[in-house]
């Protein structure tokens, strides 16, 4: 067992631990927003650990080559880019389809944003005809 194998195995172990944390958050958390919050981040970090760890681990074995590391880095970067996008789209769909927040939640920034936007639009609409009437 050389240094590359040991480093890869440690990375895979860390990634497996974060996979476990993500599954645990999926079970434990009270509503869909908290579940998404805990599980997506730790699953992304766990994928990075496992996938790049496999690439480094394969470099240390006798069948491994540099192509292993290249392909695993491609998969890891793809997952790193697409996981937040899918999480964002899912949670926006959850909010738009009217799923209520957990009763212990203390802040709803998205609703404040929507209300402020609607108020600004209303003000702009009420100002325009008055100006037109004055002219």
């Amino acid at each position: 067992m050389n240094a590359l194998t040991a480093l890869g195995e440690v990375l895979v172990l860390i990634g497996t631990f974060f996979y476990f944390l993500s599954a645990l958050g999926l079970i434990r958390m009270p509503d869909v927003y908290n579940r998404m919050q805990t599980s997506t981040k730790s699953a992304t970090l766990g994928s990075l650990g496992v996938i790049i760890g496999v690439g480094i681990w394969a470099l240390g074995t006798d069948f491994g080559s540099a192509a292993w590391l290249t392909k695993t880095v491609v998969i890891a970067v793809f997952l790193l880019l697409t996981n937040p996008i899918s999480a964002h789209a899912l949670i926006r769909a959850a909010y738009k389809s009217g799923i209520p927040l957990w009763e212990g939640s203390v802040m709803d920034k998205y609703r404040e944003h929507i209300e402020a936007k609607a108020k600004a639009l209303e003000a702009a609409e009420s100002e325009t005809p008055e100006e037109g009437g004055e002219e």
Binding site: V12, G15, Y19, S22, A23, L26, V32, R35, M36, S39, T40, A43, T44, G46, S47, V50, I51, V54, W57, A58, T72, I75, L79, N83, S86, A87, L90, I91, A93, A94, S97, I99
Partner: peptide, 26 residues
């Protein structure tokens, strides 16, 4: 309880399964 809960769980499950497939390659 809701559909989005199931979708979130499926999303996490596919992410974990991709890592599992990479480990299978090794």
């Amino acid at each position: 309880p809701t559909t989005v809960d199931r979708l979130v769980a499926v999303d996490i499950m596919t992410t974990i399964t991709a890592g599992l497939m990479v480990l299978f390659a090794l």
